[in-house]
């Protein structure tokens, strides 16, 4: 093992220990704040201070007591389903719109102000309006994700289209490519790395949004679960929820990155 690898393992471990220490200090100061060991037991099971054996949130993730009381696995699955539904919708609409904005100066002039205005709007601002429109938890969560995660896809796709070199377009002109052939043979291959950057940002946003959206819509989902645990005074479960949300977001990003690299011609065939 070289020293670089050792550093990559040891340094995060050090920071981890600092975080745990910091956490202990907070639980000393704030009364009722769960300690790391209590949280660990809540996550993986063990014997609590009353001497009872308890099942952990993460060691028993698949239980289903009733419609409103399901294990954390089902909460995560519910959230992921919404995230992917909203994300796929954002891709299906965002890429064509981005291509359009990137290829036509007029489209850019027409749409850019609205993209810039809607882009910074918080998902929480959209939520009440969408809830009013759909009157349905799933539809509201999905449409909120759609409307907040579509912007990076549009912006990055347009950026990718604009990055197409005039040289490639000259080749297309000499070969008399139709507009569709230009898109499929030249513009899309050049834009793919940009589109995936947009999709990666977008998926990150979608995963951020879902927690907030579910807190407000309720029902099922990791966001709802965290809020529900707050209402049940299970503060250690909130911390578990935060860690779980973070880990899933991290894995989603890694997967997206791998897919992006696969389609990125600049990362292929480099000797």
């Amino acid at each position: 093992m070289n020293s670089e690898t050792v550093k990559k393992i040891v340094l995060p471990l050090l920071v981890f220990m600092i975080i745990i220490q910091f956490w202990y200090e907070i639980s000393n100061i704030v009364s009722g704040f769960p300690t790391p060991s209590e949280t660990y037991k809540a996550a993986f099971g063990g014997i609590n201070e009353d001497g009872e054996t308890i099942k952990g949130v993460l060691s028993d993730p698949f239980y289903v007591n009733n419609q409103d009381d399901k294990g954390i696995f089902w909460q995560i699955i519910a959230s992921l389903k919404r995230v992917f539904a909203g994300f796929v919708l954002a891709i299906l609409v965002g890429i064509p719109v981005g291509l359009f904005v990137g290829m036509s100066k007029n489209a850019q002039y027409a749409l850019n102000p609205f993209i810039q205005i809607f882009k910074p709007v918080s998902p929480l601002a959209w939520l009440p309006l969408l809830l009013f429109i759909f009157q349905d938890i799933n539809m509201t969560a999905i449409s909120t994700i759609f409307i907040t995660s579509i912007w990076p896809i549009i912006i990055n796709t347009a950026l990718g289209v604009r990055s197409v070199s005039q040289d490639y377009m000259n080749v297309a002109k000499v070969l008399q490519f139709s507009p569709l052939e230009k898109i499929v043979q030249i513009i899309l291959p050049v834009s793919v790395p940009y589109i995936f950057t947009g999709m990666r940002l977008s998926l990150g946003i979608a995963w951020l949004v879902i927690v907030a959206a579910e807190m407000l819509t309720g029902g099922i989902g990791i966001g709802f679960w965290i809020w529900d645990e707050y209402n049940n005074l299970n503060y250690h479960n909130i911390i578990i929820g935060i860690i779980v949300v973070g880990l899933i977001g991290f894995f989603l990003d890694i997967i997206m990155g791998k897919i992006a690299d696969y389609f990125d011609y600049t990362k292929k065939g480099r000797a």
Partner: peptide, 19 residues
């Protein structure tokens, strides 16, 4: 009138599609 394949161009920077 306009570009066409009967007048093929070899560009200075080769303009091959890198993918």
């Amino acid at each position: 009138k306009g570009p066409g394949p009967e007048r093929a161009v070899v560009f200075q920077n080769h303009s091959l599609l890198p993918w």
